[in-house]
Amino acid sequence: MSAIAARRRTLPGFGLTMGLTLSWLSIIILIPLAGLFLKSLELSPEQFWNILSSRRTLNALRVSFGLAFAAACVNLVMGSIIVWALVRYRFPGRRLFDAIVDVPFALPTAVAGVALTALFAEKGWLGAPLAAAGIKVAFTPVGIFVAMIFIGIPFVVRTVQPVLQDLDPEIEEAAGSLGASRWQTIIRVILPSLGPALLTGLALAFARAVGEYGSVIFIAGNLPNVSEIAPLLIVIRLSEFRYADATAIAVVMLVVSFVIIFAVNRLQRWAQSRIPVR
């Protein structure tokens, strides 16, 4: 029986590869993250609360979370429209635009940051006409909002696109043949089918925007309490050697990210169990 116990797996290398995977994962990801949480435990609840409830921290968190949520909502709407156009219609340049959606994924954030700033600065191509209309984008919270929209687009599009592509055409034909108008079919049949994917896209775009740094800091203006994002405040606290403050803010942001991943995982499982895909 010992022979059986020793060789339960047909393919070789499970022990070795799993051991390496867990070790490397621990060294690069888990230990560093654990270090952060450990550091935060050095703070008493009171200290922790004092850091978080300081006006500047609160404002930075409010700017990051509030604007990220607003940007994710814009991305949800515009992303859906883009997905609809790319999946359902044929028009010149469709494949090019499809590829372009990934640019915010691929473009280094610092490049996106300086480019958006140049574009929306008061003398920029878009900033000038907007300034003439009395709208100031660069170096205001609006600029942060714009940068967060930029980096969030692909998340919504790439999550919803495959689901819409795989949607069984017969369910729409069935709805149509039962007398539903096109609008009713979209609202009552298609949208509910896309629901989990839309929510997932929203959550991913939000999570990315909350933590975003590179593409935001150039255009933000970084005025404390007004246009200062939480990641920047972490960097500032670090440069002031106020590690405790940096850690406390980071822990709050990390916990929110983990809650979002957890929610997205649940969403995805839920979606798999109920979506009528081919």
């Binding site: 029986m1 022979a3 059986i4 060789r7 339960r8 797996r9 047909t10 070789p12």
Partner: peptide, 23 residues
């Protein structure tokens, strides 16, 4: 074939324990 392993029991080829060998 040695592509799966039993929880218990014996397999022998010409009287020789085959479970002692991998696929």
């Amino acid at each position: 074939a040695g592509l799966d392993w039993p929880d218990s029991g014996e397999v022998s080829f010409n009287g020789e324990d085959a479970l002692a060998q991998g696929a």
